[in-house]
Computed example of a mutant assay.
Amino acid sequence: MEETSGHKEYVAGLLAGVATVVTGHPFDTVKVKLQKHNTEAHGMKYKNGLHCTARIVRSEGVRGLYRGATSSFLGMAFESSLLFGIYSRTKQKLQEGLQNTRPQPQVIIPSAAYGGAIISFVLCPSELVKCRMQVQGTDSLVPKSSRYSSPLDCALKTMKTEGVTGIFRGGLTTLLRESLGNAVFFSVYEYVRYYMHLQLKAASSDHNDLIDVGIGIVTGGLGGVAVSIDKLLYF
Rank of each mutant, 00 (worst) to 15 (best):
T90H: 11
K47V: 11
V18E: 03
K201C: 12
Q134D: 05
R177G: 15
F235R: 09
H7K: 11
G85S: 12
D139W: 07
E60W: 03
V122Y: 02
G214E: 06
L200A: 09
L156W: 12
A117F: 15
S88L: 11
A113V: 02
M44D: 04
T173K: 04
K144M: 07
L172G: 00
T174I: 05
L83K: 10
E40G: 02
Q95P: 01
H37N: 01
T165E: 03
P125H: 06
S140L: 03
K45Q: 10
M76Q: 15
L172F: 05
V32G: 03
Y66K: 06
G224P: 03
K93S: 14
S228H: 11
L74M: 15
A117Y: 08
E162H: 08
I86M: 13
S187F: 07
A16F: 11
G214C: 01
V227F: 01
G170V: 09
K91V: 14
G68P: 03
G97Q: 10
G85T: 12
Y66P: 05
V21H: 01
S205E: 14
A41V: 02
S204L: 11
E9R: 14
N38G: 01
G171Q: 11
F235V: 00
L210N: 01
N38D: 03
R102D: 02
F235K: 07
G223I: 08
F235Q: 07
S187E: 08
F27E: 05
L123W: 11
Y114D: 02
R89M: 12
G6C: 08
S179W: 00
T23R: 04
T70A: 14
I119G: 09
V164L: 14
V32S: 01
K31W: 12
N208I: 03
L128P: 03
H51Y: 09
A155S: 12
E40I: 11
P26R: 08
T138Q: 05
I167Q: 10
S88K: 14
V107P: 05
V107Q: 09
V11C: 13
G61W: 10
V21P: 02
A77F: 14
A203G: 15
P151A: 12
S150R: 14
T39S: 02
R58N: 11
S59W: 10
Y46C: 06
K231P: 02
K47C: 12
V184N: 08
D209A: 12
I119N: 02
S5P: 10
N182S: 10
V129C: 01
L175S: 11
V192K: 13
F168H: 00
L180P: 00
G163M: 08
P105R: 02
V218A: 13
R63L: 00
A69C: 15
R169K: 10
E190W: 03
D28C: 11
P125S: 07
D139E: 05
V142H: 00
L14Y: 08
R193A: 13
D206F: 15
H197Q: 13
I211H: 00
N100M: 07
V21M: 03
E3P: 04
T39F: 06
S88E: 13
M196Q: 12
S179A: 15
L74Q: 12
K93F: 14
T174G: 00
K160A: 14
E60T: 02
G214F: 04
S80V: 01
S140V: 04
F27W: 06
